[in-house]
Design a protein around this nucleic acid. Structure first.
Length: 279
DNA sequence: AAGCACACCTGCTAGC
DNA sequence: TGCTAGCAGGTGTGCT
């Protein structure tokens, strides 16, 4: 389940390798991987011959900027991987749905067993700004939360549980189940609290926790859990799961107070939290 | 119109 | 042993 830190690691891995390279060929092995595109042939033709001017990120979306008015937006979904292959002759992993061949013969491979991920073209200005297709996303949890105000506005006046509000990509972009668990733990706020009841001090604590958790997670190259198989741009797992305080640790002792980490079903999925440290 | 349920997929695991 | 049911989960849609 790639969230912001995992997507950022992939972005930073691949950016120097694809920047200024020309896409010479695009293969689509499974149309579902480009399901927003009306026509696979048009997608292939539009990319072929284009140079990549840089790889960006908005929330959990990767944005490959091209030397034209279009960018390619990539979402990894639950199980997606974007892998750099220096040797195009090396065997492609199962579930390789899209391959970009770059000048020089190297490849970028989009691999996605559960097929929740996808890539598609979007209009983007030449300055490398946010593509139109991503206009609905809220402020990026890493790049746009330097001030507390955007977060305070996102949480104010809502009845929905604060964890679910933080996972709403139109409120804040980039956070999912793992990092909202860890951020709310660090901030001392219970996940089921109504978003609108979070105090100014708690908003500040959540903002500070977000910055620290995302920064630490990126430094540890993301979280690789048992079933999600997240790997970086070179196929290597992350290590941040070793630092998780609560996520996927239900039944184990809280590292700070020793109470048992609890699990709570919320919005169709499970929150993990410490009843001793969060209220 | 905010909030919720559900569909979309595959692979793995727990339970029988 | 072999099967099935359940679970994991981000996003988009559609209903209330």
């Amino acid at each position: 389940m790639p969230e912001l830190p995992e997507v950022e690691v992939v972005r930073s891995d691949l950016d120097p390798l694809v920047r200024e390279r020309v896409i010479t060929r695009v293969e689509v092995g499974r149309d579902r991987a480009i399901r927003r595109e009306a026509d696979a042939d048009a997608f292939r033709a539009a990319l072929a011959g284009r140079a990549v001017t840089g790889l960006g990120r908005v929330g959990k979306f990767l944005v490959a900027h091209l030397d034209g008015p279009e960018a390619v937006v990539v979402h990894l979904g639950m199980s997606g991987q974007l892998l750099f292959a220096a040797d195009a002759a090396a065997a492609r992993p199962p579930h390789t749905h899209v391959v970009w061949t770059l000048d020089g013969g190297r490849e970028v491979r989009f691999v996605d067993p559960r097929t929740f991920g996808q890539m598609f073209r979007a209009r983007a200005d030449a300055g490398g700004g946010r593509p139109d297709a991503l206009a609905h996303l809220g402020p990026d949890a890493r790049d746009d939360l330097r001030d507390v105000e955007p977060l305070a506005r996102a949480l104010a006046g809502r009845q929905i549980a604060v964890k679910l509000r933080l996972m709403d990509q139109t409120a804040v972009a980039g956070l999912g189940n793992i990092y909202t668990d860890e951020i709310l733990y660090r901030a001392g706020v219970a996940p089921a609290r109504a978003s609108g009841t979070v105090t100014d001090d708690e908003v500040a604590a959540i903002a500070a926790a977000t910055a620290v958790v995302l920064s630490d997670a990126i430094a540890a190259r993301g979280s690789s859990l048992a079933d999600a198989q997240y790997v970086d741009g070179f196929g290597r797992p992350g290590r941040y799961q070793e630092q998780h305080a609560v996520h996927a640790r239900a039944g184990l002792p809280c590292p700070r107070c020793g109470r048992t980490v609890a699990r709570l079903k919320m919005g169709g999925r499970f929150a993990s939290w410490c009843p001793g440290c969060q209220s």
